[in-house]
Amino acid sequence: MAVTTEQLAEEMYQMVKETMGKKNLKAGDLTKAMIAKYGEGEINKDDCKHAIRILMDSGRCVYSYFGGSFITLPHKEGSAPE
């Protein structure tokens, strides 16, 4: 594997950070982006799954829900902003 799971997690984190407020990303979007970048022979879906798990378990990212589940940065708790 060309990259470590930790590196994948870091890259995913940067992607989430950059698109925050512009586009909501799903787990599948991050996975597709990483596989496109490193190539199918280098990393697979399971690697990406583990990377997402690292982001979640460390609290760096959280799941959000608006008619679908997205991965975002942690935010102030509360209802939908108004």
């Binding site: 586009k23 909501n24 008619g67 939908a80 902003p81 108004e82």
Partner: peptide, 13 residues
Amino acid sequence: KHDILPKVCEVPT
């Protein structure tokens, strides 16, 4: 609610 829409919703979605 045009006043809050851009803040709370992703328009393409």
